[in-house]
Nucleic acid binder design. Structure first.
Lengths: 149, 149
DNA sequence: AGGTCGTCAGTATATTTATACAGTTTATTC
DNA sequence: GAATAAACTGTATAAATATACTGACGACCT
């Protein structure tokens, strides 16, 4: 059993079954004749970015990553490469220009990504205006966005 | 300091600052002259359904609930009104057409919403293809989506 | 007032999770 | 192949988190 396979399996299990704690994973794997320890599961969970969510029934349960951040990044990156025109900063504002019709999509993605520097975000047809927490955030945010290109 | 207020504050803190562990919350509150213990924070976190997410920098960080379902619905609704062109069902497939450049964003939102009818989802530039579990799911899913407009 | 119920928070502790360290396996380079 | 490095895991334990238990406080009775 390779790490990759185990990761696959964990993803599957976390969706199929209710996993309340890491030991539950260990048990499930044991049932399938796979020997692992809680320590390994802890590391797997970190890599897979699984999260332990307080459930409505008063308990806890592990879940898939809240945002497929990886995925979001990929989409952002693709969209940036496709539609990016320019970016500029003024005080705590960042203005991104895109090809016409793309700004809304870009804004949506940026909002979904929930960058900590960001305070708010409005999108027009070819412009996304991001309001950051302060000037420094704006700088940092600009760098982040540029790095997608 | 009432529980409600504290919850408000925790929500704010978790967005503004990087909270790596519950003690960080305790410290932040102490800075503001609010006395609480880790135990209380643990309970607050459970109630607020905050989650500890493995971060990209190798550490951990607390975040808002993965399902801001309310929020997601709002965004979906907004995006649908803005960018929706048509929807169609064939067998277990649902095809949504949007204005060019918007399908990614729509697909992202739909994926984030994790509808139970949905099996998978791919987005192009102006098209989102949703593969449902079966024909009935597809019908139901279509109705759901239409209700956003 | 006294009594009862419900909410809430602290203390102490049990439970759960993360990780330092060491050993083993697997890949890489000479 | 041998040597070296990198990836991976278990053991033991540290660190972080959840919770049983208890007491405090307030609301609402009688």
């Amino acid at each position: 059993m390779k790490k990759k396979e185990r990761h696959q399996l964990l993803r599957k299990l976390v969706q199929q079954d209710v996993i309340r704690k890491q030991e539950d994973f260990v048990d499930k794997l044991h049932e399938r004749g796979i020997e692992v320890t809680q320590a390994t599961i802890s590391r797997d969970i970190k890599e897979l970015q699984l999260v332990k969510v307080p459930a409505q029934d008063g308990g806890y349960r592990y879940n898939l990553p809240p945002e497929m951040n990886y995925d979001i990044s990929k989409k952002l990156s693709r969209l940036m490469r496709d539609a990016f025109v320019s970016i500029d900063t003024q005080r705590e504002f960042v203005l991104i220009r895109t090809l016409p019709g793309n700004a809304f999509a870009l804004g949506s993605l940026i909002e979904t990504a929930k960058y900590s520097e960001m305070f708010g975000c409005v999108s027009g047809d070819d412009t996304v205006l991001i309001i950051c927490r302060d000037e420094e955030s704006a700088e940092r945010f600009q760098r982040r966005i540029i790095s997608f290109i």
